[in-house]
Design a protein around this nucleic acid. Sequence first.
DNA 1: TTAGAACAATGTTATATAACACAAAAATAC
DNA 2: GTATTTTTGTGTTATATAACATTGTTCTAA
Lengths: 233, 233
Amino acid sequence: MPAKRKNGIDLSSSLSDIWKVLSDDEREVLRKNARIVNFKKNELIYCENEIPKDLMCLFKGKVKIFRTGVGGRNQIIRMIRPVQYFGYRAYFAHEPYVTAAAAFEPSTVCMIPMEIIEKMLLGNSHLAMLFIQMLSTDLGIADQRVVNLTQKHIRGRLAESLLFLKESYGLEEDGATINIYLAREDLASLSNMTTSNAIRTLSNFVDEHVIAIDGRKIKIIDEDKLRKISRMG
Amino acid sequence: MPAKRKNGIDLSSSLSDIWKVLSDDEREVLRKNARIVNFKKNELIYCENEIPKDLMCLFKGKVKIFRTGVGGRNQIIRMIRPVQYFGYRAYFAHEPYVTAAAAFEPSTVCMIPMEIIEKMLLGNSHLAMLFIQMLSTDLGIADQRVVNLTQKHIRGRLAESLLFLKESYGLEEDGATINIYLAREDLASLSNMTTSNAIRTLSNFVDEHVIAIDGRKIKIIDEDKLRKISRMG
DNA sequence: TTAGAACAATGTTATATAACACAAAAATAC
DNA sequence: GTATTTTTGTGTTATATAACATTGTTCTAA
């Protein structure tokens, strides 16, 4: 039996991870309570200090989780790709959001009230394990990120970001172009540097034949070298 | 009925958070499977790349979770106080440890095999919620830490660390001395700076009458000023 | 009690990176 | 299609912080 559709989107295939561990009754509850929301490019999905209300699942598009630091300088904390969940951490910690989320490009997000999820969690321990696993993975990434961002030099940080983008969003048909187009400013706030330095370092990489750039398209020419730069700094 | 004792330690009062959400049967399982291990000052509790096996609960002492970064430079990621749990994240993420843990001072740790905990989790969703909450809180802290460590200047980072130590370990009877004595080197690797700079900045704070130092004892003289420095950088 | 190591303090130099300024190119609006 | 804003690119300067060197101090051990 195919799942009911909302705005032409098949919930059962899109919410895959969660869907798998649910009973028919639980699935019906989700169907009834899920909202599908579309966001324009650069539109805010939630913002700092807001009270978290929904579990969000990115169906389509690309989303950045970021935080405004000293002197209004933004720092990208995490990036979300389809089909990943986000927005639930603060609810579980009983805090307002400490980050904000915005769509990089036109995006479709499925929202399910956290109260529903929380109730479901108490009756379905496999669902709980899923959240424990996601949180544990993210915390491990955050722990490593702290060290990478603070100890590596500019070149190493930018190289790492490029590799991270490749892992996250993959390559285009040519097998080289990273499948996400970021402004230099976003690349900078992902790599903890100023925009000027992102631009400069990117140019250096081009001179060294590690990458090629065409506007916002970045082609990885020599991945080994990029990895070496990322490791060494 | 009082809980059985192991090496003179009362499990039921020490494992408080977890204990509360367990049934009598589950408590009995923990009693049977818990080991109490003592660690000397500076002794390693677990190390990087090791396979995680136990949930650990610090009963007595102080523990640092750290990571070896570029060029062997250590970075303290988290600090543990009694009665906090640690060592479980990597197991849930199905990874080897990305961090190491060491005792700052003579410490007593209760260890419970993660297999036991995982099984218990599937049958007790309140226990699962507890882990979800702990992980969510830690992830929020990590997210904020990334921004603080990368964007604040040395003075701000050190001030923040001192405040953090005060919040975590409290003050002594005099109402001013921070209740943990760290080497300058540890203070540095907690604040992402070199040992020299930790020493220098500490001396500056003394000159400015923000703190007073006597060896490794740090007395907070002007907390407001310290907060201001932490905010501004 | 002395020898040796670990730790703390301080000054000097080197350097990575931010900050600033400006020009060119591209995107967007009118 | 021109005007205006945003983004990208590049050179210059300033500065925060690491790196290094040296000395004094405290702790540890034989």
